[in-house]
Simulated assay, not measured.
Amino acid sequence: MQAPAPARLIEGGLPTDALIAQVLVSKYADHLPLYRQAQIFARQGVSLDRSTLADWVGRAAFLLRPVHERLLETLKRSGKLFADETTAPVLDPGRGRTKTGQLWAYARDDRPWGGTDPPGVAYVYAPDRTAGRPIAHLCGFAGVLQVDGYAAYESLARGGAVRLAYCWSHVRRQFYDLAASSPIATEALSRIAVLYRMEAEIRGRSAEERRAARQERSRPVVDALEAWLREKLGLLSRKSNLAEAIRYALSRWAGLSLFLADGRVEIDSNTVERAIRPLALNRKNALFAGSDGGGEHWAVIASLVETCKLVGVEPQAYLADIITRIVEGHPQRHLDDLLPWAYQPTPALKAVA
């Protein structure tokens, strides 16, 4: 008599779900490309081809896709999100070189104003950067979307369900690049710095307290800055870099001022830019994804890993556990139980911890 073998992601294979989770976390959290992981295994006497590891990653990403979809759906039910995008080089075998895909990031973090929804981020891979991508990704979302100055997001606001809040950090960068040779740019930086000092003082307070403080102290600064920028713009050549920086700010002034009237809104979109950094590190080390499918796998696994990090869940234990649960038949109607912020380790994992 022999007990049936436990279900595994790789049927009939040797790798356990814990080993596959280690490969995923090494690749997407610790930024170790698969060829380096293969070298590490080889030094330990384990011969694993890179293509074998890639097959494991693909199978895991396919299995976890419903969890990723539920994560994005849950974030879209929020009243406020951040959005940004970054390049994702993808191998293009037909032409013998890489093409440029995009990883779009949609993040939530209400902790600066004491919101009760847990933070999270969902990445979505797309082969291009057209305006139709965020429209499709955020279908059903209604609320405030905090973004940089990329024009593709403007189409989301046309129906009125989405309000765009723009990023003061991007405005500041325009002037920072010119400050060494321009007193006007230096003065603009000084005025924007006043707003950031104010934000540092009220971080962590309730949304209503933040709104009241901004109305009292930040609004006069913003109103004076707008008038001052319009005055200086009339003195500059229209073709100068400084005039371009001023027009960048003034053309987005309504979105830049939205944080004054809504305490939930941040002064910048640095929250989602921080969520983009791990993608950049992975891109630097791995150079490119093997295909559009590889880009989609990247989005699925990175979303779960980075959300784990935001909510303080250990990603390797999390991935190993939920892979096992899904393989053993976890019901689709209870996918919410597998999201990182709802994750509860099994008793066996708690005992090990």
Rank of each mutant, 00 (worst) to 15 (best):
Y343H: 07
T130G: 15
A286Y: 00
R43C: 12
G140D: 08
R65F: 00
Y318S: 01
A107N: 01
A42C: 03
Y343S: 03
D17T: 11
I267R: 00
L81T: 09
A207C: 10
G204C: 10
L233M: 05
L195E: 07
R173M: 11
A122K: 01
R163K: 13
D148V: 10
Y106E: 03
E273Y: 08
S240E: 12
R325V: 07
P315D: 04
T324E: 15
G140F: 00
I202D: 08
F82C: 03
G120D: 05
V67T: 11
L260M: 03
A351P: 01
W168F: 10
A157P: 11
G312D: 04
L72M: 11
V222I: 12
L338T: 02
L279T: 14
L236R: 04
V313L: 10
R230M: 09
A348L: 13
E244L: 12
E273V: 11
I276P: 04
Q102P: 05
I10N: 10
Q44M: 14
A245K: 00
N282Y: 04
R163I: 13
A317T: 10
D268E: 12
A243M: 09
L236Q: 02
D177P: 03
S251N: 14
A161G: 07
R158L: 15
D92H: 13
R210H: 07
D92S: 12
R97P: 00
P183D: 15
D337P: 07
P347D: 12
V67R: 01
A286K: 01
A157H: 01
V352H: 09
Y28N: 02
L145C: 06
Q316L: 11
I301T: 06
A188C: 14
V327K: 01
L71K: 07
A245S: 11
A207M: 04
A320G: 15
E226M: 05
V265N: 02
W104Q: 00
D109G: 04
R197P: 02
F175E: 00
A151E: 15
L145P: 00
G132C: 02
R59H: 08
G101P: 01
A213T: 04
K350E: 14
S218Y: 10
L178I: 06
E154S: 14
R283V: 14
V144C: 03
N282A: 14
P134D: 11
G101D: 06
T100F: 07
A5P: 03
S237C: 02
D321L: 10
Q22W: 10
A200E: 15
P340R: 04
R43N: 06
Q44C: 12
S78F: 00
I246N: 04
W253M: 05
T186D: 09
D110A: 14
D223G: 05
E226W: 07
D321R: 03
I135N: 04
D292Q: 12
V352Q: 10
H68E: 03
A61M: 04
R325Y: 00
A213F: 13
E328Y: 02
S291Y: 00
C167L: 11
A105V: 11
A142F: 00
L338N: 06
Y150A: 05
A348D: 14
A254S: 15
P315T: 05
V162N: 04
L63D: 00
